[in-house]
Structure formats: structure tokens, C-alpha cells
């Protein structure tokens, strides 16, 4: 089966929780122009599960993910990833953490246009000066059906293919957690379905932890758990939801968002 040694050792201290936020506050700007993007968020992301964060534009869902991924420093509160508290880490340690423990899938794919698909997938490992485990490489490339596309440049690939390359890039390092930021935002519905199936199976088959931010109820329905955000706070937290569930919850949230937005 799949070799999960590194996951095991890393997970010793936080077997259940891959990433955790406590009392997270993020304020942009200062004085009258300040915006409170996160207003006291507590969230524990369980390992080996697929967690989705939903919310309207400006609800703070992207900021939450940036903070969890160590891309932004919170104004207050703590973030722990793979048992390490991010607040005390230097830029260097934070970089190492991103490199070794975190994977990213972006809305805009963000492949390096001058590198081939293969080189893009290998990029995080080569940044760390490591080589991939051949069996793991074959497994991922096969599962993502990228064998014929490895020597193409991103410009020669379709959107769905590019995002598959991005997923392979995230999976190859076997990170503690993968953050996906609207991964289907730039894709048609067929490609979207493909990517979501892929993320789902990475959780089921490889025990990968995935956190995804999305607008898309269909995408969210692939998850184990959906966290709804409004005005920087968690307002709902549901497990094993269907598309209909999500739509009704979103509909319920809508007026509340309008009210608080207006006040």
C-alpha cells in the first residue's frame, strides 16, 4: 500500500488535528479605514479529512486560509500547523514549513510558465534539494493522468490539465495539509468535477488532509465538513453535507450577511 511513514512521525503530536486556529483576529489597515477581516475564529482542521470553508465575498474565508497557511500573520490569536505554532517562526522557518508541510492549489493555477509540467511538479522538492520517491511519483502521475503531458509547458495545456499539474505539485511532497484556494474558479464544470473527485480521492485513498475555500456548492458537497464564514466569524459548521443542504444554509445566511453588512 501507500507508504505513510513521514506522515506518521509528523502526526505523533497532533494525530487528529492537522492545523488549528485559536482566537484568530486579522485587521487590515488602521484607524477609521481599518477592516476586521477575521473576528475571533476558532477552528481545528482534522487530519485526513476534507474541510471546506464557504462564505460570501469579504466574509474572511480567504484571509482565514492565508493565516492557516502561514502566508499572513494574524493580528491576534495563534495558528498551529503540524504541531508548530506559526507565530514564533522566523521567515526562514516559515518558508521551510511551507516547503515541507504545506501544499497549495491556486485558483489561477500559478504554474511557472517557463517550466515544463514535470519541472513544475518537481519544483517544491527541487527547492528543498530532494528527489521524489519513484513509486509515489508514478502513482500520482498515473492517478492524475499526466503521463503524456509531462513535457508540455503550461501554455500548451488546457485549464483542467494545468490544475491537475498543480494538484500533482501539491500532492508529491506528501504535505501535512493541502490548501486549495477556489481551485475550480477558473474551470468549466466537467474539469471542476474532475478536480474535486481528485481531491476527494486524495483524502480517501492517501489520507491527505485538504482545506479548500470555495463559492461553489457543488464543489463543497465533495467535502467531509463545511465551515460557513460571515463577517469574519464562523456561523455554521456542518458535516457530510449535500448540495441541497449547502444551498439552504447559504440561503439562510444571505439575509444575515446583508443585515450585518448594512449596520
Amino acid at each position: 500500500m501507500i507508504d505513510r511513514d513521514s506522515e506518521q512521525t509528523a502526526g505523533q503530536t497532533a494525530r487528529q488535528i492537522a492545523a488549528q486556529a485559536q482566537g484568530l483576529v486579522k485587521v487590515y489597515g488602521n484607524g477609521a479605514a481599518s477592516v476586521r477581516a477575521l473576528d475571533g475564529v476558532d477552528l481545528a482542521v482534522e487530519a485526513g479529512r476534507f474541510t471546506v470553508v464557504m462564505g460570501a465575498s469579504g466574509s474572511g474565508k480567504s484571509t482565514l486560509m492565508h493565516c492557516l497557511a502561514g502566508l499572513e500573520k494574524p493580528t491576534a490569536g495563534t495558528v498551529t500547523v503540524a504541531g508548530e505554532s506559526l507565530g514564533s517562526l522566523s521567515d526562514k522557518r516559515l518558508t521551510m514549513l511551507r516547503r515541507d508541510r504545506v501544499g497549495f492549489v491556486f485558483q489561477a493555477f500559478n504554474l511557472i510558465p517557463t517550466l515544463t509540467a514535470r519541472e513544475n511538479i518537481l519544483l517544491p522538492l527541487s527547492l528543498a534539494g530532494r528527489r521524489p520517491d519513484p513509486a509515489w511519483w508514478d502513482l500520482i502521475i498515473g492517478r492524475l493522468r499526466l503521463e503524456d503531458r509531462l513535457d508540455h509547458r503550461p501554455g500548451q495545456l488546457s485549464g483542467g490539465q494545468q490544475q491537475r499539474v498543480a494538484c500533482a505539485r501539491a500532492l508529491l511532497g506528501r504535505p501535512t495539509i493541502i490548501f486549495a484556494d477556489e481551485p475550480t474558479g477558473n474551470l468549466d464544470s466537467r474539469s471542476s468535477g474532475e478536480i474535486m473527485t481528485l481531491l476527494r480521492s486524495s483524502v480517501d485513498d492517501f489520507g491527505q488532509t485538504v482545506v479548500m475555500v470555495t463559492h461553489d456548492p457543488v464543489g463543497a458537497s465533495y467535502s467531509d465538513r463545511v465551515v460557513f464564514l460571515a463577517d469574519g466569524r464562523i456561523v455554521e459548521d456542518a458535516t457530510d453535507v449535500t448540495v441541497a443542504d449547502i444551498l439552504s444554509r447559504l440561503a439562510r445566511l444571505q439575509p444575515a450577511t446583508a443585515e450585518t453588512g448594512g449596520s
Binding site: T95, R99, F104, I112, P124, L127
Partner: peptide, 16 residues
């Protein structure tokens, strides 16, 4: 900028 930020997000150090 964006490309460099991706590199940083993927774990490239400032020095790299």
C-alpha cells in the same frame, strides 16, 4: 511578482 510569490508559497526561501 506573482510568479515569485508562487515560488515563495511553494517553499522557496528569500535567498533562493
Amino acid at each position: 511578482t506573482r510568479e515569485l510569490a508562487v515560488l515563495r508559497a511553494l517553499g522557496a526561501s528569500r535567498a533562493q
